[in-house]
């Protein structure tokens, strides 16, 4: 049987959360939810594991702490010890208070930057990345839920649950690409129209038009 993707579009975070909980409780898996802002409780409802980014940050902090200590020990104590301001540098402990500010800064530097790099890497985010949300409205005010299923009976059940929980639109597509292509088509059509009419500042009406068009279908 061919695998289908069911998309439910919601206009309220409570609805999408309720729908997720219900669909998961029926034994289905919610592939993905695209949302304009973080919905609290959604990650647990979808069964996502807790993020371990905070732990990596701690590790990176330790790394920074170690590296800077090594560097300062080498520069100030080992390579060329000097007496500065009446304070000898014959051992690390002797001038320890003077090393603490830089130690702190370097620890924070490594903890912050390396964690952010880990975050970008794990999420596959980088400048020029072509990935995006299937429906552009999900960065505005809509929530898009994605469920994969092949059994037509189950598809109907999922569609029913989605609608019950307040979905504004429910679509069944063969793949993400199909949905995206469709929306892109709408977009480019719209762009051509707007160019011809030389409408420069049409902002709010633009997306509502798309929504209306899709609804008319």
């Amino acid at each position: 049987m061919e695998n289908k993707v069911i998309y439910g579009l919601y206009g309220d975070d409570d609805h999408v959360l309720a729908a997720t909980k219900k669909i998961v409780s029926k034994g289905y898996r919610v592939n993905e939810v695209y949302s304009p802002y973080p919905v609290h409780g959604l990650d647990t409802a979808m069964g996502l594991n807790y993020s371990r980014l905070a732990i990596t940050s701690f590790m990176y902090g330790l790394l920074g702490f170690g590296l800077i200590t090594l560097l300062m020990w080498f520069i100030m104590i080992s390579d060329w010890p000097m007496i500065i301001g009446g304070k000898p540098n014959f051992s690390y402990g002797q001038a320890l208070p003077a090393f603490i500010p830089v130690t702190f800064e370097a620890t924070v530097f490594c903890a912050a930057h390396l964690m952010v790099i880990t975050f970008l890497f794990r999420c596959g985010l980088f400048p020029g990345s072509s990935s995006r949300n299937p429906d552009p409205r999900t960065t505005d005010d809509k929530f898009l839920m994605e469920v994969s299923e092949s059994d037509p009976k189950k598809i109907t059940e999922i569609k029913k649950i989605m609608k019950e929980c307040g979905a504004e639109e429910v679509n069944v597509k063969n793949s993400v690409k199909e949905l995206m292509d469709e929306i892109d088509g709408e977009l480019s059509k719209k762009n051509k129209v707007s160019k011809r009419r030389k409408v420069k500042k049409s902002n709010s009406s633009f997306l509502t038009n798309i929504i209306n068009k899709i609804k008319r279908k």
Binding site: G85, G86, K87, P97, A98, I100
Partner: peptide, 12 residues
Amino acid sequence: WFAQYMLIWYSN
């Protein structure tokens, strides 16, 4: 604690 201690230690 550190601010007070370090400044006094440093200036001596």
